[in-house]
Amino acid sequence: MASLTAPRSPLGSAVLLVPALLFGLLVTLQWRTQADRSDVSLRRTAPLLDAARSLQDEQNGLKTQLADLRAQLDEIQRSASSQNAVARDLQVRIDELRRAAGLTERSGDGVVVVLDDTRPAAGVAGSDAERALCHSTDLTDIINATWRGGAVAISVNGERVVGSTSVYCIGSTSMVNGTLMAPPFSIVAIGSQDQLMAILDDPAQLADIKRRRDAHGLAFTVTRGAGLKVPAYTGALNVRSATAR
């Protein structure tokens, strides 16, 4: 029978056999350790995931309760204050402060900033992939720039930015006002569109974000918006240690 290839010596086959065996062994080992690892990490993270989700659900419920109590107290105050002039003046001042504090919804013209991380392409590792992700400092930088541009109300993914607001980031999950969120981030700012655009378009502002957008594909867009809505703050005021002097 005619062979298609040149007859091989037994030695030549052995040379191929050894690396093939080694390769097979490596693949099997790799596959097994990966399978084991994901089993272990799943076993450990599953209850943690459940705990995080149920705490977030609980928080949503607590915020609804708080909003409900604030509305009740407000109604009692309002009907009582209609009866005398001192109380009426006080109520006017309270209403003004509630607006300034971010406890009321705001609507108007302004800008919308969208920030999203780009999934790093395969093979892009380390610092390059890191630069394509968005971080909590990006959000604080954008908030800082929009206040600078004269914004009167700002929200991040529906969470109102108030005096006690912080942006907290761990891994790829963020918290604003203690509420879990993840990219894409939509920052809505109500205020003078021209003034806001002037700051956000200024190359000296948010320079790091703009550099990463151009070099690493970080998604960052700024658009004008009309009739925008920024919701009321629903969290705790948490004034405990500080007293007015």
Partner: peptide, 13 residues
């Protein structure tokens, strides 16, 4: 209660 609210909001803002 109104005084209390006023004070809390003034600290907060």
């Amino acid at each position: 209660e109104a005084q209390r609210q006023l004070e809390q909001l003034e600290v907060f803002t």
